[in-house]
Design a protein around this nucleic acid. Sequence first.
DNA 1: GGGGTAAACATAGGACTCCTAGGGGTGATC
DNA 2: GATCACCCCTAGGAGTCCTATGTTTACCCC
Lengths: 111, 111
Amino acid sequence: MTDEKTAILKGTLDMLILKVVALGPIHGYAISQRIQQISKDYFQLQEGSLYPALHRLENRGFLAADWQSTDTGREAKFYKLTRKGRKRLETEMEGWERMTEAVALILRTAE
Amino acid sequence: MTDEKTAILKGTLDMLILKVVALGPIHGYAISQRIQQISKDYFQLQEGSLYPALHRLENRGFLAADWQSTDTGREAKFYKLTRKGRKRLETEMEGWERMTEAVALILRTAE
DNA sequence: GGGGTAAACATAGGACTCCTAGGGGTGATC
DNA sequence: GATCACCCCTAGGAGTCCTATGTTTACCCC
């Protein structure tokens, strides 16, 4: 059952992650916090969504990772964009623009 | 594999259909044409997506259907919005607004 | 020292949605 | 009478997100 709680539209998450990583190297756990913070709590990213997404982005060559220690003294996997990932982000953003415009065309149609 | 061809964002289709049906009673086949036309060919709705969507919208009580004949003299299943469907469309449109705003917040973040 | 909490990672399984690829019937057109 | 456009339908697969659960380590408090 698709209920109203499904906040993140399927297919959007990758773009959001790429965008946040584009702001600077960052580890997974912090990505989810950052997305939540920037979106003013609209997106509450679950870890069960986050980590699989990170792995597939890495597998596809959009992200590169290495282990470093955080401010709080723990080991964490820091991600950064690859060149391919930067391109991907661009095309995804353009696609998002076109898509939302197409939706807007329909939603604004008054008979 | 998620490639760039995936035009319709999962979860958006129901809203688009409800909106088009809200413009006036219309049968399934015409819905897909109308969506394609209004969106200036951006959305090319497949029948394998359309009909299952119509059935679930009907099952959930958002659409009501009856058979009538078209201009071209064929039998077709005409859909119209129920009261519940009209409410659903409203909440989906509000949700869409909030969601795209949240995405915009993230996409426009320039460190 | 022991217990609790937050940070940080991970995976399995289910639900849902969309698409591909079929199938079928009818009216119009050449 | 064959082809095309119209009009409906379903099964199966791929992909994405979520729930639920598990692990380890740093920190805090008593």
